[in-house]
Simulated scan of single mutants.
Amino acid sequence: MFYAAFIIGLVSSLHCLGMCGPLAFALPVRTTNKWNKLFKYLLYNLGRILTYASFGLVSGLIGKGFVAVGLQKVLSVSAGVLIIMTIFFIYNPIKIGLFNQLTNSINQKVKAGFQKYFQNSSFTSLFILGVLNGLLPCGVVYITLLSAIATGDSISGAIYMMLFGLGTMPMMLAVGLTGNILREKIKPVFFKIVPLIGCIVGVMLVMRGLNSSASSNVTIHSCCHSQTCH
């Protein structure tokens, strides 16, 4: 699953480019020194990844509760089904307006924080802007958090989301350093790729849960057969 988290981040960075690209391009970097500029963008992205990891910690903790009562297989299948249902809810054209209304209040609060830290270009400000960026409502992040629940452990959930964030970093660094050129070329495809990613992750989790159940049945059958032979 950890490999999957990084790949999801890498592929979904096309979505990040469309949604967060303008924000990355507008960051108060204000320097001509390329190494200073790179370090500031790294700090921004590390702040974003820290927020994702914190959310992953909570998701893994929720999953741990299911594992503690022996529902790990049910958890994996349920998480997969829930992701697919979420995709159909969020990306159904009729429902998109409703989803936007639900997230508007969060957006406004986060943007108020952005306005405060956009006033200066210090390292601290760039890092905090990254932390705030991680709080912005995002369908891909929600989908990944649902799959992080299936890790069944708080630390694993945090690592899962950290790897997801690292997967998005190359594209976000690229748009920050190259400007709006890259975004305009890829923008038309970003909205189409998110539902596809979500469905793939959902199917992977369902198959993982079903395969675990099949493996358990084979093991039980083998044990019973061995006892009969003795």
Rank of each mutant, 00 (worst) to 15 (best):
F123G: 11
F25C: 05
G63A: 01
V189W: 15
M1L: 12
S105K: 11
V74E: 10
L182D: 01
I7W: 12
A214V: 12
Y160C: 02
V203A: 08
I94L: 13
R208T: 01
K40S: 10
I155Q: 14
M169Q: 00
M169H: 04
T103Q: 13
L102P: 05
M207Q: 12
V58Y: 09
L126A: 04
W35L: 15
G198F: 08
Q101S: 11
V201S: 05
V140Y: 01
L146W: 05
A4Q: 12
N104G: 15
N33V: 08
P137Q: 02
R48W: 14
S226R: 10
Q119C: 05
T32K: 10
S122P: 06
V58Q: 09
A150R: 02
L42S: 10
K187N: 15
F6V: 14
P28S: 04
I96W: 13
P170G: 02
L75F: 00
L102Y: 10
N211V: 05
I7R: 08
T178I: 10
C224E: 08
N133C: 11
F88A: 08
S147M: 07
T32G: 14
A174Y: 14
L146K: 03
I62S: 01
L42G: 03
L182Y: 12
G198S: 06
L50H: 00
N180P: 05
Q227K: 15
V201R: 04
L102R: 13
S78L: 05
G198T: 06
F2P: 08
Y160T: 04
S125K: 00
T228A: 07
L196R: 06
L43T: 09
L75D: 00
S156Y: 11
I149T: 03
H15E: 01
E184Y: 12
K73G: 09
I87M: 13
S105I: 07
S121K: 07
I200W: 07
L196A: 13
S54L: 11
S122M: 08
I159R: 03
M171F: 14
L129I: 04
I143C: 10
N180K: 12
S216C: 11
S105Y: 09
S154L: 09
M204P: 06
N45G: 05
P195I: 03
P137V: 01
V11P: 02
L71R: 07
P137M: 01
P188A: 02
A53E: 02
S105M: 13
N133S: 14
F99P: 06
L98V: 15
T144E: 09
A214Q: 10
V29K: 02
K192A: 14
T219H: 11
C20L: 04
L146T: 01
N33I: 04
I193K: 06
R48A: 10
G179E: 00
G21I: 02
N33S: 08
K185T: 08
L71N: 02
L17Q: 02
F39K: 15
R30H: 15
V81N: 11
G209E: 00
G80P: 01
T32S: 15
R30D: 12
K95N: 12
L50V: 06
G202H: 02
